[in-house]
Amino acid sequence: MGYASLDSSLSFSDNNLPPNKKSILITDTLSASGNFLIHHFIVNQIKSDKHVVLVGFSQIFNHYLIIGRKLGVNLTLASQKGLFSFIDGLTSLYSQTDSKQTSVLTPNSLSDSPISKESLQNFYKIIKQIIETRHSSINDSRICLIFDDLSVLIYSGFNIKDILEFVKACRMMIEKYNGSLVMLIHADEDVSQSSPDDELDQEIFLKSLIYQSEYLLSVRGLGSGFSKDVSGEITIARGPRNHDKLFRPSTLHYKILDNNVQFFVKGFSQGVL
């Protein structure tokens, strides 16, 4: 399984899989990247033989493959079995002509693929097509759609409304398959310093996503600075839509190791005890 100590804090029933039709929002900062949480959800899904569709805007397939191998899953094999699909948003965001899930470098030019509503709709179609052809065959696929770094879309200049519409459409589609949605965005912009436009965009985007999700995992560096024994701090909170009575919000510290991440209550680091 993924990170055992995170599983126990999240306490999802049913094999630690994210609950049906729920979405999880991960926010991170520059000093503490939330990328390690993505791997947790991938590994949990694959190990329970459930499906994963990963949209990587910030890393290529190789990155997830190598880390997955360290965590005990073989993504190439999972991909051959039809459990795992990767959509390369890093190289092909600006030319979505090919719907291949593998990382094929295409000579893409920015000029002939403008950043518009159409290209997002195109992108949605690609995701939909992949899900329908590869993952909808089994009833109990419990598919998990993961967006690694949605912030890229905002940074690239897509209209905020279009992105939110895109996310909503993805969520609706996922709900059809009893699946779940995991999204990662960066949330450490200093609002007071930004220009009014950017500020509004970022605020609206972040708050709308929070409003749409049931679980919030917020990762940040330690306020006191770098530490050898603690990599950062994570707050597990419920979203506005979450009415689960058993859920307990908590704030934990974590330490990233080579092939695991330990989560512990503040002050209970192994380096301290």
């Binding site: 805007f57 290529i60 890093l90 190289t91 092909s92 965001l93 600006y94 990382s103 470098l105 893409n108 920015l110 950043i115 890229v152 940074y155 690239s156 200049g157 950017d198």
Partner: peptide, 19 residues
Amino acid sequence: NSSHDLFVFLHALRGLLRF
């Protein structure tokens, strides 16, 4: 013309360099 040009450039450059 817009600050997004730089973000798009960096994203594309990173995608290009990865391969």
